[in-house]
Design a protein around this nucleic acid. Structure first.
Lengths: 189, 189
DNA sequence: GTCTATACGGCGATAGAC
DNA sequence: GTCTATCGCCGTATAGAC
C-alpha cells in the first residue's frame, strides 16, 4: 500500500477535492478518510494544509510558468509576434494543469492570504507586464488582462458546448491572441 | 446607536470583510466585534452565515439583475444592437455593487455550494444565453463568456492604472462590446 | 520512517436567561 | 435584542506505538 507513494496519493486526492469543493470546505479529515488513514498521518507528509496546497502548485505549474517568464525576459517582447509567443507558451503550460487552474481561479480570496497565492499572482502580473504597455490606453490594458483570464477560465467553463479540453484551450488562445493583437495596435488610444 | 438599523450595520461590516478577506476567513466573531456585540447577537438578525451573505445579494444585485433579464426576454435580442443594450444595462447594474461583484468573483468555489451562488450563476448563464448562439463556433462562445467575465473582473482589477471606477467600468464595457460584436458576426465559424 | 491517539483553541450554530 | 453556555467539527500539534 504505502510504497513511498503516499505523498503523491495525498496530493492526488487533495487536488481533486480542492478543485471540486474549494480549499476551505475540504477538510483534512475528508482527504485522510479517502486514503484510509487518519488526518494526523497527513502531518507527517505535509507540515500544514497550506504546505499541502503549496506542493500542488510547485509540482504542477510553478516550474513551467517560470520557464515562460524566463523566455520572455530573454526575448524582450516588443513585437506583436513575441507577445503572441508568450500567450502560446503560457497556454500550453496551464493546459496541463486544468484542475489546479480551476482551483486557483475559483479560490482567489483564499489564495490571496497564502504565500503560494502571492507568488502565483506575482508571476501572472509579470507575464501581463510583457503583454501590455504600462502607459497604454485603459481599454488596451483591459484587453490584455482579459486575454490571460480568458485562457484560465475557458479551461473549465463552456462544458455545455460539448467541446473537448484541447479544443477549448485552442479557442481561448485564439481569442486571447485577438485581444493582445488589438491592444498592441493601440485601438483604444 | 442601534435604532432599528442594526441589520443594515451588520450587512455593511459583513460586505466589507467578505470582500477583503473572503467568506470563510471572515468569522462571525470578527463581524460582531467590529459592531461591539457578541456573535450570538448576529443570530437574532440572520438565521445563519449563509443567510447573511444571501441578504447582501438580494439587497444589492438580484433585483437589478432580474430587470436586465426581463428586458432581454421582452426584446428578444437577435440583432447586435439589442445584445449591446444588454451589456450596457448589465454593466450599469453591477457597477453599483463593485465590492459584492468582487466577492462573487473571488469566492466562486464557496458560492457554488450556497443557494444564492446557484441563483446568481443561473442568472449570468441566462444573460449569456441571450448574447451567444448555442450552436455558434467555439471561439464565439468564448468571446461572449469572456465579455461578461471581463466586465466583472475589471471592476476590481487594474488598480495600478490609476483609473477611476467609472473609467474602468466604461473601458470594460467597450471591450465587452467588441467581443460580442465579433461573436455576432461569426468570425470564428 | 510511518502512522495512531489525544488534546487545544476557534469556528458556525443553538438553547435559554435577562 | 443581546447575552452566556454549550455543542460538534475544524486545523494544528505532539507523544509515542510499531
Amino acid at each position: 500500500m504505502s510504497r513511498g507513494n503516499t505523498r503523491q496519493r495525498i496530493q492526488d486526492v487533495a487536488l481533486k477535492l480542492f478543485a471540486e469543493r474549494g480549499y476551505e470546505k475540504t477538510s483534512l479529515r475528508e482527504i485522510a478518510e479517502q486514503l484510509g488513514v487518519t488526518k494526523a498521518a497527513l502531518y507527517y507528509h505535509f507540515k500544514t494544509k497550506e504546505d499541502l496546497v503549496t506542493s500542488l502548485f510547485e509540482d504542477l505549474v510553478l516550474g513551467p510558468c517560470d520557464e515562460v517568464i524566463a523566455w520572455a525576459r530573454v526575448h524582450r517582447p516588443t513585437t506583436l509576434e513575441a507577445k503572441l509567443q508568450i500567450l502560446r507558451r503560457y497556454s500550453a503550460c496551464i493546459g496541463n494543469a486544468t484542475p489546479l487552474v480551476r482551483f486557483m481561479h475559483e479560490n482567489q480570496a483564499t489564495l490571496r492570504e497564502l504565500s503560494i497565492g502571492e507568488q502565483m499572482k506575482k508571476r501572472i502580473f509579470t507575464l501581463l507586464g510583457f503583454l501590455k504597455d504600462q502607459d497604454a490606453a485603459l481599454t488596451d490594458q483591459v484587453r490584455c488582462t482579459s486575454a490571460l483570464f480568458t485562457m484560465h477560465s475557458t479551461l473549465f467553463t463552456l462544458d455545455s458546448s460539448g467541446a473537448g479540453p484541447e479544443d477549448k484551450r485552442r479557442a481561448a488562445l485564439e481569442v486571447a491572441e485577438e485581444l493582445v493583437t488589438a491592444a498592441h495596435h493601440g485601438d483604444g488610444a
